[in-house]
Amino acid sequence: MALAVPLAARVALLQGLAGDGAAGAEATVPASARDASIAALDRGETHYTDRPGILPLRQAVADALRTRHGVEVDAGKGVVITCGVVEARFVAIQQLVPAGSGTVVALSHPERVAAACIVRDVRLVGPDADAHGPALVYLTSDTPAETRDPWLARAADEGWAVVFEAAEESGFHPASAGLADATVTVGGIGAGQGLEAWRVGYLAAPAATAGPLRDFKQSLTLCTTNLSQWGALALMEEHA
């Protein structure tokens, strides 16, 4: 069967990435998440959820962003629960960088966005390369300040989008560099605590930015697994 021509070329690139590498990794599931998922099943939580996710989980994400990073987002209109952080990154890159002509500047962990960049057909460069034209700056909680600060200043000047992948702990956020409106925060929930196979993540942004991201997420997967969301909520509440 003939694949789309540009895709056929890119599939080879995608297959060269670590893609399936995580398969087989095992982790013990926290009891709180397990029990909450079982309780959700007992309540009959087997249907589609609201497309941006169950409201208490969106609220927990908004609360965590406030306490960990001092960032205000609207749980109702600014938070979208995704199928793992993978979907959050993908949705952000699909929606915020123009296909073909755009560039993603990954200040750290370029491997996390490499596949999404290939599918979007945008250039992926590191902090030492130059970027021109429409660009998006991707950074993570562990991006060193000396790399981060000049690029965030440049993003502010050029009006570029910023995608910040937040660790599940307190720390820096681009909002403190005056980029609250330009930043989409993405993250996984419980991935480091045994919940990776639950596939729950989020993206959070000012409502005007989040709206189209939410619509695109819905067209991609409708909503995130119901029982996973309840498990993730229990874990967040336990660590709040």
Binding site: L14, D20, G84, V86, E87, A197, W198, R199, T225, S228
Partner: peptide, 11 residues
Amino acid sequence: GATTGPVANVS
């Protein structure tokens, strides 16, 4: 691998 990775395990 780029859109969502694997489907939730329990599902």
